[in-house]
């Protein structure tokens, strides 16, 4: 057990250094902030038209951020970040070096997976923190909007957590695609294709079973007053991402490095 922990600690630490001077780290910070900043500008300039007087502005502001993130940002960002991080390894032709390293073969996949999962977590934390900061800043700069009179740290944090869990399967799937295929274009292209399929079929009665809709349904729980912490799509996402992760690790153990 101790050896496994040491292998994981060393492996993830080595993986973390590889993203130094690359776009991957900055993308994790800038992507969530881009959505929040855009919503901030919309509410700063047109807030008085969007919000009704005397109504809690956080509900609309956070809802707008969650919808945009869940529908577009999360799937696009996940396709991009997984392709970028695995692309570093493909570009360096580093798989042979990793699989010839003295550590169990399943660690190669898991180390990288955990690093990117950490980046995704960082993105969602940045998103939530950015959302709070933007809301409180609006309350200070535009007191008429009323942001300063309400406090929603708990419900917004829960909303962020829901989108994160709802996105886990997309993350694992995109990670597997970019791990397997060298072409960054292929993994990003497939990601875009799957998102398009969701947007086109969003009115279909069974769309709730389609993985690329799960972040959206998870985010929608924010609007429901008496919603449980976990909505069904979050369970689907969590369960299927664990199953896919186990399958991918088993497959990576047998990987023949030509």
């Amino acid at each position: 057990m101790e050896a496994t922990y040491t292998f994981l600690r060393c492996g993830v630490s080595a993986e973390a250094l590889k993203i130094k001077n690359s776009w991957a780290f900055w993308l994790s910070l800038l992507a969530p902030l881009s959505i929040v900043s855009m919503n901030f500008l919309v509410f700063y300039f047109k807030g008085d038209r969007i919000l009704k007087p005397g109504v809690d502005p956080w509900f609309t502001f956070a809802g707008n951020n969650f919808t945009a993130t869940a529908q577009l940002l999360a799937p696009m960002f996940l396709a991009l970040i997984t392709a970028l991080v695995n692309g570093i390894e493909h570009h360096a032709n580093g798989w042979k070096q990793l699989y010839a390293a003295p550590m169990p073969r399943w660690m190669v996949f898991l180390n990288k997976y955990l690093l990117v999962l950490g980046l995704v977590l960082l993105t969602f934390c940045t998103f939530c923190l950015g959302l709070f900061a933007a809301g409180y800043l609006l309350g200070w700069l535009k007191p008429a909007l009323g942001f300063q009179y309400y406090d929603h740290v708990q419900s917004i944090s829960l909303g962020g957590f829901r989108v994160f869990i709802g996105s886990l399967f997309i993350f694992t799937l995109q990670f597997c695609i970019s791990y397997r295929f060298k072409s960054i274009g292929l993994s990003i292209g497939l990601g875009i294709l799957f998102i398009m399929a969701f947007l086109i079929g969003s009115r279909w009665e069974y769309i709730g079973y389609y993985p690329y809709s799960w972040p959206y349904f998870s985010a929608s729980a924010f609007y429901m007053k008496a919603s449980a912490v976990f909505v069904p799509q979050m369970w689907y996402s969590l369960g299927s991402s664990i199953a896919l992760l186990v399958l991918a690790i088993c497959h990576s153990v047998k990987k023949q490095v030509q």
Partner: peptide, 19 residues
């Protein structure tokens, strides 16, 4: 297998951490 965006020292540091 070298990471071109990193320095020589960083490339060695990646492998050092791994080992």
């Amino acid at each position: 297998s070298l990471y071109n965006h990193l320095t020589g020292q960083d490339n060695l540091e990646v492998m050092r951490r791994l080992l």
